[in-house]
């Protein structure tokens, strides 16, 4: 049972005070309390990756992340990932290569890809598989996701 109190959480560099139980997953705080619906619900059990956000730069499944465990951590969501150079390039590559179909999984895909490229700027196919295997796309956009990640890796290499 979560203990009832208000929490301060930092999302995309803005502090919010939320009044929920400590065990409520971050996903629902983002979506229903803060109204930030870019982060998606797909499974609720860390099985699909649709809800991926960054917590202190690390990719996390927000559907299983109790809001009470965040402490001082800083959360980044799809709404702000475009403010980072990697996020911006990924979004551009996603559009250049027409990755998106229904689009519902793509917030999570881009968040996972951004975390991958931040830690591994020149990923191998194996690195991409490992980082992205937890992100399901029911529309099957995997071929183009892989190409888009590689495109960004290559362009940033040249920088």
């Amino acid at each position: 049972m979560g203990e009832a109190m208000t929490f301060k959480i930092k999302v995309n560099d803005v502090e919010h005070e939320v009044d929920v139980d400590s065990d409520i997953p971050l996903l629902w705080v983002l979506r229903d309390v803060l109204g930030m619906t870019g982060t998606k619900f797909g499974c609720g059990r860390a099985l699909c990756g649709a809800c991926t956000v960054h917590v202190n730069g690390m990719p996390m499944r927000s559907c299983v992340m109790p809001v009470g465990d965040l402490g001082e951590s800083s959360v980044t969501t799809i709404e702000a990932i475009g403010d980072t150079p990697i996020g911006e390039e990924l979004q551009k590559a996603w559009l250049d290569l027409e990755v998106v179909q229904c689009g519902y999984c793509q917030s999570g895909q881009i968040m996972s890809a951004a975390a991958l490229l931040a830690s591994t700027p020149e990923p191998t196919d194996h690195d991409i598989d490992t980082a992205m295997a937890g992100n399901i796309c029911r529309c099957g956009t995997y071929v183009r996701i892989r190409e888009a990640i590689k495109q960004v890796a290559q362009t940033s290499q040249g920088d």
Binding site: G38, I78, I81, Q91, W94, L95, Q106
Partner: peptide, 13 residues
């Protein structure tokens, strides 16, 4: 180019 996609990569859709 798809017309519906720009807002699907930034969470706005």
């Amino acid at each position: 180019k798809r017309l519906d996609t720009p807002d699907k990569v930034n969470g706005k859709t």
